[in-house]
Simulated scan of single mutants.
Amino acid sequence: MPVNRKTSPPSRRSLLRALGGGAALGALAGCGVPAAYVGPGDRAGADLSATDKRLTWANWPLYIDTDDEDSTRRPTLEAFEKRAGISVDYIEEINDNDEFFGKISPSLMNHQRTGRDLIVISDWMCARFVRLGWVQEMDRSRQPNVVKYLDPLLSSPAFDPGRKSSVPWQSGITGIAYNRRKVGREIRHVSDLWADDLKGRVTLLSGLDEAFALLMQANGVDIRKWRADDFHQVCDQVERQVRRGQIRRFTGNDYIKDLAGGDVLACQA
């Protein structure tokens, strides 16, 4: 989201709760919109796979392989369509978890179709969907590759014990992307983002888990057991960089356009 000095920002207390993980997500799902909860008996959707050979898949930009010579082609997706006989409408429409949640949640809380068969969201947002009852258990007998190849480290997250209602699409890292040709040097540390010659041409991610985890690590914090003081230290650092105009804006995956277009020289990515 853009930096906006005209509106009151959320309190540090609310941000701290949001970043805290499991318990906070349960509170958001349980009491924020109680009428949105869907009971176990109402979660099953009709299986139309025998007659409907189309699939709509909502994903993030740059989250699937493309052909080296033709970026509009997606070899893995094309291979799937040929092998399965299923036509896939692949939409790169997810820029930010909260933004996408706001887009489809009205349909889900009213037991209506979203128009999408598959969605890819971050694990903490997936936790919210699970706790709201917006997902149903998958039939693993129809997914032998999941059973055979799923990394044991990802097989039973706290929000989905036994991984019954979700499947990991990617597991990766948040890092720093930059235009070395224009910057004229390597960027090796978060502190490098605060250089004077990058003023106004740096972006951070809007997702607290991604943005703050990297910033905390830069402060030498073990992010598996961070404390409130670590959080407040990062808040102070970010606020200071916002006030001095160092940070252009906070983004979802649309940092890609800023970086490619030259408006941004370095960013969380």
Rank of each mutant, 00 (worst) to 15 (best):
R131Y: 10
R244Q: 14
A127H: 14
K148N: 11
A211Y: 01
G252M: 05
I64P: 00
W134D: 01
R227W: 03
K257P: 00
L77A: 05
I104M: 06
G102K: 10
R227M: 12
C31Q: 11
V190G: 04
K82S: 12
V202W: 01
N145Y: 13
V202L: 09
D254T: 00
G200F: 03
N95H: 11
P152F: 01
R180G: 05
A46V: 14
K225I: 09
D263N: 09
D263Q: 07
L132W: 00
G245S: 13
G262V: 00
I173L: 14
E92P: 05
E99I: 06
L198M: 05
D68F: 04
E93F: 04
R73F: 08
R240T: 13
A58L: 07
V3F: 10
R224W: 04
V221Y: 05
P34S: 09
N110I: 00
A269T: 05
N253T: 13
G262Y: 02
N4F: 11
S155G: 12
D98W: 13
V238W: 08
I86E: 00
L62C: 06
R113G: 08
R74V: 01
V202A: 07
P2H: 06
I91W: 01
V264L: 04
L154E: 04
G162T: 02
R244F: 05
A127V: 00
E99R: 14
S71F: 08
A211S: 15
R240A: 15
